[in-house]
Design a protein around this nucleic acid. Structure first.
Lengths: 146, 146
DNA sequence: TTTTACAATTGTAATAATTACAAAATTAAA
DNA sequence: TTTAATTTTGTAATTATTACAATTGTAAAA
């Protein structure tokens, strides 16, 4: 908690309670939550909390590169408390986003990007996760049972 | 034009005028337009065209994998008439999306995805393109000129 | 050709996540 | 303590996309 405050300061962010709590929450919830989920969770501790404040905190944290926005399907922004290079997999059934470890090459060697300034990069997959696939099989068997 | 109709049929899409025109437009406009831009362009030929119809056509084409949706910044869907594997680079200044040729390995070997069903994958970069970088330099020089 | 059925198109209204903005509260500085 | 600056809150606005019902168009059957 104290340590998180330090981390914010090191990244040029004034460590207000909300910012600390939002960042702390993102470090603990590995499911890549959206603003609403963070809001609902933190409201239990901070009853006066507003959704706008959560968005504000997320914006500041993103701008200072402590967290990352994940845009996969267009109707929501999800947030990731870890900025180390990794990819994502989003299940279209359960909407969960999973981390995917990915040690890939430095793409900057590609001609088209040589003279551009790269600020961010993202790799993601969309599909159906193992768990939801199994559910589908069970469902299918149930319908065709004799 | 006839050929495009054939292509739709081959992908199980009934080749209506709007669907043909939308797909044809996407094949020609390499700037990865959004629905609005397509609508504005095609309206000149088809005065009765509605924006909803453009969205409908784009949905059908996407579902049948003739085109691809590109979600990079959360406030818009851009469309790509080419489904061959490639990445994108979006400039945050001019909002253009560029193609990036990318011959990368088959990621499916990664453990996390072994048992999942992958339907789609996407790689993109965000930054400032060469052209906009140059503009910034010019602007900077102009301010500091002696 | 007429009838019928079905699919495509249109127009309007709804949706909903995010942002804008101004007022209130809090914190830091003088 | 007073003042200034920043953070937080609440409400309203924004806006791309979707839902939906009505209309139009198309193609097959009689």
């Amino acid at each position: 908690m104290q340590k998180i405050g330090q981390e914010l300061i090191q990244h040029g962010i004034k460590p207000s309670l909300i910012r600390i709590k939002v960042y702390d929450y993102l470090k603990k919830d590995k499911d890549h939550p959206d603003a609403e989920k963070i809001f609902t969770a933190l409201r239990k501790e901070i009853p006066t909390l507003s959704l706008t404040s959560v968005y504000n905190a997320l914006k500041v944290l993103t701008k200072n590169k402590l967290i990352r926005e994940i845009m996969i399907e267009e109707d929501e922004i999800r947030y990731d408390g870890f900025i180390e290079q990794h990819a994502h997999f989003k299940c279209i059934k359960c909407k969960k986003i999973f981390d995917v470890n990915l040690k890939y090459k430095n793409y900057l060697k590609f001609d088209e990007l040589k003279k551009a300034k790269i600020l961010d990069e993202h790799i993601y997959f969309i599909g159906i996760c193992e768990n939801c696939l199994n559910k589908e099989i069970v469902e299918h068997d149930r319908k065709n049972k004799r």
